[in-house]
Computed example of a mutant assay.
Amino acid sequence: MEQPLDYQEKTAGRNMVTDVPVFSENDTLKDIEDFLIDRSSQFNSLDYIYLTDKINTLVGVISIKDLLVTVDKTLKASKIMVSNLVTAQVDTDQERLVYLALSHGLKSIPVVNEEGGFMGVVPYDTILQIFNHEVQSDVFKFGGIFHRIGDEYTSIHSSAIHMIRSRLPWLIIGVIGGTLAASLIAQFEELLSSFIALASFIPVMVYMSDAAGAQTEALIIRSMALDTKLNVRKYLTREVVVATVLAAISGLFAAFMAYVTRQNLILGVIIFFALFLSIIASVTINTLAPLILRKFKYDPALATGPLATIFSDIATLAIYLAVAMTLLGN
Protein backbone atom coordinates (compact mmCIF):
# COMPACT_ATOMS: atom_id res chain seq x y z
CA MET A 1 0.00 0.00 0.00
CA GLU A 2 1.28 3.48 -0.83
CA GLN A 3 2.27 5.54 2.19
CA PRO A 4 0.38 8.78 2.82
CA LEU A 5 2.02 12.11 2.16
CA ASP A 6 3.31 14.45 4.85
CA TYR A 7 1.12 17.43 5.67
CA GLN A 8 3.37 19.86 3.79
CA GLU A 9 2.99 17.67 0.67
CA LYS A 10 -0.80 17.40 0.67
CA THR A 11 -1.33 19.44 -2.48
CA ALA A 12 -2.72 18.91 -5.95
CA GLY A 13 0.72 19.27 -7.49
CA ARG A 14 2.01 16.32 -5.50
CA ASN A 15 -0.87 14.09 -6.53
CA MET A 16 -1.30 14.85 -10.22
CA VAL A 17 -0.32 12.83 -13.29
CA THR A 18 0.69 14.35 -16.62
CA ASP A 19 0.17 11.45 -19.04
CA VAL A 20 -3.37 12.40 -20.06
CA PRO A 21 -4.97 13.10 -23.47
CA VAL A 22 -4.48 16.76 -24.37
CA PHE A 23 -5.58 18.19 -27.71
CA SER A 24 -6.16 21.53 -29.37
CA GLU A 25 -9.65 22.97 -29.28
CA ASN A 26 -9.46 23.11 -33.08
CA ASP A 27 -8.83 19.38 -33.55
CA THR A 28 -11.69 17.40 -35.04
CA LEU A 29 -13.45 14.65 -33.13
CA LYS A 30 -12.28 12.12 -35.72
CA ASP A 31 -8.63 13.06 -35.23
CA ILE A 32 -9.01 12.76 -31.46
CA GLU A 33 -10.83 9.42 -31.65
CA ASP A 34 -8.31 7.90 -34.06
CA PHE A 35 -5.41 9.02 -31.89
CA LEU A 36 -6.98 7.53 -28.75
CA ILE A 37 -7.67 4.22 -30.46
CA ASP A 38 -4.03 3.93 -31.51
CA ARG A 39 -2.34 5.20 -28.33
CA SER A 40 -4.79 4.91 -25.42
CA SER A 41 -2.42 2.60 -23.53
CA GLN A 42 0.11 5.40 -23.01
CA PHE A 43 -2.17 7.44 -20.77
CA ASN A 44 -2.40 7.16 -16.97
CA SER A 45 -5.89 8.66 -16.93
CA LEU A 46 -8.51 8.43 -19.66
CA ASP A 47 -11.62 9.86 -18.03
CA TYR A 48 -11.63 13.15 -19.91
CA ILE A 49 -10.03 14.75 -22.94
CA TYR A 50 -8.44 18.11 -22.13
CA LEU A 51 -8.42 20.94 -24.65
CA THR A 52 -5.96 23.81 -24.70
CA ASP A 53 -5.30 26.85 -26.86
CA LYS A 54 -2.06 27.89 -28.53
CA ILE A 55 -0.45 29.01 -25.24
CA ASN A 56 -1.47 25.85 -23.35
CA THR A 57 -4.32 27.51 -21.45
CA LEU A 58 -6.97 24.97 -20.48
CA VAL A 59 -10.16 26.01 -22.30
CA GLY A 60 -12.39 22.96 -22.05
CA VAL A 61 -12.87 19.23 -21.51
CA ILE A 62 -14.74 16.46 -23.32
CA SER A 63 -15.83 13.23 -21.68
CA ILE A 64 -15.11 9.98 -23.48
CA LYS A 65 -18.85 9.32 -23.53
CA ASP A 66 -19.60 12.61 -25.33
CA LEU A 67 -16.86 11.87 -27.84
CA LEU A 68 -18.27 8.45 -28.69
CA VAL A 69 -21.96 9.40 -28.88
CA THR A 70 -21.43 12.40 -31.16
CA VAL A 71 -22.34 11.26 -34.67
CA ASP A 72 -20.69 14.03 -36.68
CA LYS A 73 -16.98 13.37 -36.26
CA THR A 74 -16.04 16.31 -38.47
CA LEU A 75 -16.95 18.74 -35.70
CA LYS A 76 -14.19 20.59 -33.95
CA ALA A 77 -13.62 19.71 -30.30
CA SER A 78 -14.61 23.23 -29.26
CA LYS A 79 -18.18 22.55 -30.46
CA ILE A 80 -18.93 19.92 -27.81
CA MET A 81 -16.47 20.81 -25.06
CA VAL A 82 -17.49 21.90 -21.58
CA SER A 83 -15.92 25.30 -20.93
CA ASN A 84 -17.28 25.94 -17.43
CA LEU A 85 -14.43 24.13 -15.71
CA VAL A 86 -13.75 23.06 -12.14
CA THR A 87 -10.00 23.23 -11.63
CA ALA A 88 -7.37 23.16 -8.90
CA GLN A 89 -4.02 24.88 -8.64
CA VAL A 90 -0.76 23.12 -7.82
CA ASP A 91 -0.89 24.32 -4.20
CA THR A 92 -4.55 23.39 -3.62
CA ASP A 93 -4.94 21.30 -0.46
CA GLN A 94 -5.76 17.67 -1.16
CA GLU A 95 -8.83 17.80 1.09
CA ARG A 96 -10.32 20.39 -1.26
CA LEU A 97 -9.64 18.08 -4.21
CA VAL A 98 -11.94 15.51 -2.65
CA TYR A 99 -14.59 18.18 -2.01
CA LEU A 100 -14.42 19.41 -5.62
CA ALA A 101 -14.69 15.90 -7.06
CA LEU A 102 -17.59 14.82 -4.85
CA SER A 103 -19.57 18.06 -4.97
CA HIS A 104 -19.36 18.33 -8.77
CA GLY A 105 -19.54 14.63 -9.60
CA LEU A 106 -16.16 14.57 -11.37
CA LYS A 107 -13.93 11.58 -12.00
CA SER A 108 -10.76 13.67 -12.07
CA ILE A 109 -9.66 17.24 -11.40
CA PRO A 110 -7.48 19.23 -13.84
CA VAL A 111 -4.61 21.19 -12.32
CA VAL A 112 -3.64 24.59 -13.71
CA ASN A 113 -1.08 27.25 -12.82
CA GLU A 114 -1.88 30.85 -11.89
CA GLU A 115 -2.18 31.83 -15.56
CA GLY A 116 -4.58 28.97 -16.34
CA GLY A 117 -1.93 26.87 -18.04
CA PHE A 118 -2.65 23.14 -18.01
CA MET A 119 -0.32 21.21 -15.67
CA GLY A 120 -1.86 17.79 -15.21
CA VAL A 121 -4.72 15.86 -13.63
CA VAL A 122 -5.52 14.33 -10.25
CA PRO A 123 -7.18 11.03 -11.28
CA TYR A 124 -10.11 9.33 -9.58
CA ASP A 125 -8.06 6.55 -7.93
CA THR A 126 -5.82 9.15 -6.28
CA ILE A 127 -8.88 11.13 -5.15
CA LEU A 128 -10.33 7.99 -3.56
CA GLN A 129 -7.03 7.29 -1.84
CA ILE A 130 -6.91 10.84 -0.49
CA PHE A 131 -10.50 10.58 0.71
CA ASN A 132 -9.80 7.31 2.51
CA HIS A 133 -6.65 8.69 4.13
CA GLU A 134 -8.27 11.96 5.23
CA VAL A 135 -11.24 10.17 6.81
CA GLN A 136 -8.94 7.83 8.72
CA SER A 137 -6.67 10.69 9.74
CA ASP A 138 -9.53 12.84 11.05
CA VAL A 139 -11.09 9.92 12.95
CA PHE A 140 -7.80 9.01 14.61
CA LYS A 141 -6.94 12.60 15.51
CA PHE A 142 -10.36 13.13 17.07
CA GLY A 143 -9.61 10.01 19.10
CA GLY A 144 -6.35 11.45 20.35
CA ILE A 145 -3.91 9.27 18.39
CA PHE A 146 -0.67 11.22 18.34
CA HIS A 147 0.85 9.97 15.09
CA ARG A 148 0.85 10.25 11.32
CA ILE A 149 -1.69 7.84 9.87
CA GLY A 150 -0.29 5.07 7.68
CA ASP A 151 -0.37 1.31 7.21
CA GLU A 152 0.09 0.70 10.90
CA TYR A 153 -3.55 1.68 11.56
CA THR A 154 -5.11 -0.22 8.70
CA SER A 155 -3.60 -3.53 9.72
CA ILE A 156 -4.53 -5.83 12.59
CA HIS A 157 -0.87 -6.85 12.86
CA SER A 158 0.42 -3.59 14.38
CA SER A 159 2.57 -4.18 17.43
CA ALA A 160 1.26 -3.34 20.88
CA ILE A 161 4.32 -1.18 21.54
CA HIS A 162 3.67 0.93 18.46
CA MET A 163 0.01 1.43 19.35
CA ILE A 164 0.92 2.42 22.92
CA ARG A 165 3.46 5.01 21.73
CA SER A 166 1.02 6.68 19.39
CA ARG A 167 -1.88 6.88 21.84
CA LEU A 168 -0.17 7.50 25.17
CA PRO A 169 0.96 11.16 24.73
CA TRP A 170 -2.58 12.56 24.51
CA LEU A 171 -3.66 10.50 27.50
CA ILE A 172 -0.74 11.85 29.53
CA ILE A 173 -1.71 15.37 28.51
CA GLY A 174 -5.27 14.52 29.55
CA VAL A 175 -4.09 13.43 32.99
CA ILE A 176 -2.19 16.69 33.41
CA GLY A 177 -5.23 18.70 32.36
CA GLY A 178 -7.51 16.68 34.62
CA THR A 179 -5.15 17.21 37.54
CA LEU A 180 -5.20 20.95 36.96
CA ALA A 181 -9.00 20.88 36.84
CA ALA A 182 -9.12 18.86 40.07
CA SER A 183 -6.77 21.33 41.75
CA LEU A 184 -9.02 24.15 40.65
CA ILE A 185 -12.08 22.48 42.15
CA ALA A 186 -10.16 21.82 45.38
CA GLN A 187 -9.79 25.56 45.87
CA PHE A 188 -13.58 25.82 46.11
CA GLU A 189 -14.31 22.83 48.37
CA GLU A 190 -15.84 25.01 51.05
CA LEU A 191 -18.16 26.65 48.55
CA LEU A 192 -19.21 23.31 47.06
CA SER A 193 -19.77 21.70 50.45
CA SER A 194 -21.99 24.57 51.56
CA PHE A 195 -24.01 24.51 48.33
CA ILE A 196 -23.90 20.87 47.23
CA ALA A 197 -26.20 21.46 44.24
CA LEU A 198 -23.35 23.31 42.53
CA ALA A 199 -21.26 20.12 42.43
CA SER A 200 -24.09 18.12 40.90
CA PHE A 201 -24.22 20.45 37.88
CA ILE A 202 -20.49 20.32 37.07
CA PRO A 203 -20.97 17.45 34.55
CA VAL A 204 -23.71 19.44 32.79
CA MET A 205 -21.49 22.51 32.50
CA VAL A 206 -18.51 20.55 31.18
CA TYR A 207 -20.56 18.54 28.69
CA MET A 208 -22.36 21.56 27.25
CA SER A 209 -19.21 23.58 26.70
CA ASP A 210 -17.39 20.59 25.20
CA ALA A 211 -20.30 19.87 22.84
CA ALA A 212 -20.44 23.46 21.61
CA GLY A 213 -16.67 23.52 21.19
CA ALA A 214 -16.59 20.26 19.24
CA GLN A 215 -19.24 21.56 16.84
CA THR A 216 -17.28 24.76 16.31
CA GLU A 217 -13.97 23.01 15.75
CA ALA A 218 -15.37 20.54 13.23
CA LEU A 219 -16.91 23.38 11.22
CA ILE A 220 -13.85 25.61 11.13
CA ILE A 221 -11.48 22.78 10.21
CA ARG A 222 -13.78 21.84 7.35
CA SER A 223 -14.03 25.50 6.25
CA MET A 224 -10.24 25.88 6.31
CA ALA A 225 -9.82 22.73 4.24
CA LEU A 226 -12.40 23.75 1.64
CA ASP A 227 -11.40 27.41 1.38
CA THR A 228 -7.66 28.06 1.53
CA LYS A 229 -8.36 31.82 1.45
CA LEU A 230 -10.89 31.80 4.26
CA ASN A 231 -11.89 35.30 5.38
CA VAL A 232 -10.99 34.90 9.05
CA ARG A 233 -12.50 38.19 10.21
CA LYS A 234 -15.85 37.47 8.56
CA TYR A 235 -15.86 33.91 9.87
CA LEU A 236 -15.06 34.99 13.44
CA THR A 237 -17.76 37.67 13.35
CA ARG A 238 -20.37 35.12 12.33
CA GLU A 239 -19.11 32.63 14.94
CA VAL A 240 -19.42 35.24 17.72
CA VAL A 241 -23.05 35.86 16.77
CA VAL A 242 -23.82 32.14 16.60
CA ALA A 243 -22.04 31.44 19.89
CA THR A 244 -23.92 34.23 21.67
CA VAL A 245 -27.32 32.95 20.53
CA LEU A 246 -26.48 29.32 21.34
CA ALA A 247 -25.09 30.30 24.73
CA ALA A 248 -28.14 32.38 25.63
CA ILE A 249 -30.68 29.71 24.65
CA SER A 250 -28.72 26.86 26.23
CA GLY A 251 -28.12 28.87 29.38
CA LEU A 252 -31.80 29.74 29.76
CA PHE A 253 -32.88 26.14 29.26
CA ALA A 254 -30.27 24.80 31.68
CA ALA A 255 -31.27 27.44 34.25
CA PHE A 256 -34.91 26.43 33.88
CA MET A 257 -34.04 22.75 34.40
CA ALA A 258 -31.90 23.62 37.43
CA TYR A 259 -34.76 25.57 38.99
CA VAL A 260 -37.31 22.83 38.25
CA THR A 261 -35.15 20.04 39.70
CA ARG A 262 -33.72 21.93 42.70
CA GLN A 263 -36.36 24.61 43.35
CA ASN A 264 -33.59 27.14 43.87
CA LEU A 265 -33.69 30.43 41.99
CA ILE A 266 -30.11 31.50 42.72
CA LEU A 267 -28.84 28.16 41.39
CA GLY A 268 -30.71 28.79 38.14
CA VAL A 269 -29.18 32.26 37.84
CA ILE A 270 -25.68 30.86 38.45
CA ILE A 271 -26.21 28.14 35.84
CA PHE A 272 -27.42 30.68 33.27
CA PHE A 273 -24.52 33.12 33.56
CA ALA A 274 -21.88 30.41 33.94
CA LEU A 275 -23.08 28.37 30.97
CA PHE A 276 -23.49 31.49 28.83
CA LEU A 277 -19.90 32.53 29.45
CA SER A 278 -18.55 28.96 29.26
CA ILE A 279 -20.01 28.26 25.82
CA ILE A 280 -18.64 31.53 24.46
CA ALA A 281 -15.21 30.69 25.93
CA SER A 282 -15.28 27.16 24.51
CA VAL A 283 -16.31 28.36 21.06
CA THR A 284 -13.53 30.95 21.15
CA ILE A 285 -10.91 28.35 22.15
CA ASN A 286 -12.00 25.86 19.52
CA THR A 287 -12.14 28.51 16.80
CA LEU A 288 -8.74 30.05 17.51
CA ALA A 289 -6.81 26.81 18.08
CA PRO A 290 -6.92 25.60 14.44
CA LEU A 291 -6.18 29.11 13.16
CA ILE A 292 -3.13 29.40 15.43
CA LEU A 293 -1.86 25.96 14.41
CA ARG A 294 -2.23 26.81 10.73
CA LYS A 295 -0.34 30.06 11.33
CA PHE A 296 2.60 28.02 12.64
CA LYS A 297 2.41 25.51 9.76
CA TYR A 298 0.89 22.66 11.76
CA ASP A 299 -2.04 20.53 10.64
CA PRO A 300 -5.18 22.26 12.05
CA ALA A 301 -6.78 18.87 12.76
CA LEU A 302 -4.24 18.40 15.57
CA ALA A 303 -6.19 20.92 17.61
CA THR A 304 -9.10 18.51 17.86
CA GLY A 305 -9.95 16.06 20.62
CA PRO A 306 -8.05 16.03 23.92
CA LEU A 307 -6.01 19.24 23.55
CA ALA A 308 -8.90 21.63 22.95
CA THR A 309 -11.05 19.73 25.44
CA ILE A 310 -8.54 20.25 28.25
CA PHE A 311 -8.42 24.02 27.83
CA SER A 312 -12.18 24.18 27.41
CA ASP A 313 -12.84 22.12 30.55
CA ILE A 314 -10.51 24.19 32.71
CA ALA A 315 -12.03 27.43 31.41
CA THR A 316 -15.55 26.11 32.06
CA LEU A 317 -14.81 25.10 35.65
CA ALA A 318 -13.06 28.39 36.38
CA ILE A 319 -16.00 30.39 35.02
CA TYR A 320 -18.59 28.26 36.81
CA LEU A 321 -16.96 28.49 40.22
CA ALA A 322 -16.10 32.18 39.81
CA VAL A 323 -19.71 33.04 38.89
CA ALA A 324 -20.99 30.98 41.81
CA MET A 325 -18.70 32.71 44.30
CA THR A 326 -19.57 36.15 42.95
CA LEU A 327 -23.36 35.67 43.04
CA LEU A 328 -23.32 33.92 46.42
CA GLY A 329 -21.38 36.82 47.94
CA ASN A 330 -18.14 34.99 48.85
Score class of each variant (00 low, 15 high):
2 E>M: 11
5 L>K: 07
11 T>A: 03
23 F>Y: 15
24 S>I: 13
24 S>L: 14
24 S>K: 08
26 N>L: 13
27 D>G: 11
30 K>C: 07
34 D>L: 14
35 F>L: 10
40 S>V: 11
41 S>R: 13
42 Q>P: 10
51 L>W: 02
51 L>E: 02
62 I>E: 07
68 L>V: 14
70 T>M: 05
71 V>T: 09
73 K>F: 02
75 L>Q: 15
77 A>L: 15
80 I>W: 14
86 V>P: 09
90 V>H: 13
91 D>C: 06
94 Q>D: 13
107 K>I: 04
108 S>A: 09
110 P>V: 09
114 E>T: 14
116 G>K: 02
117 G>W: 00
125 D>R: 14
130 I>V: 11
132 N>D: 07
134 E>N: 04
135 V>L: 04
139 V>L: 08
148 R>Q: 15
149 I>D: 05
150 G>A: 10
152 E>D: 15
154 T>Q: 10
156 I>A: 07
156 I>Q: 05
167 R>T: 08
170 W>H: 14
177 G>Y: 04
179 T>F: 09
180 L>A: 14
183 S>H: 07
196 I>Y: 12
198 L>D: 00
212 A>S: 13
212 A>Y: 12
225 A>R: 00
227 D>H: 14
231 N>Y: 12
235 Y>T: 15
249 I>P: 05
251 G>Q: 10
258 A>C: 04
261 T>R: 06
265 L>S: 02
270 I>Y: 03
273 F>I: 11
275 L>F: 09
275 L>H: 07
281 A>N: 05
283 V>F: 07
297 K>V: 10
300 P>S: 01
300 P>G: 01
303 A>S: 13
305 G>V: 06
313 D>R: 00
318 A>F: 15
321 L>I: 08
323 V>P: 06
330 N>A: 09
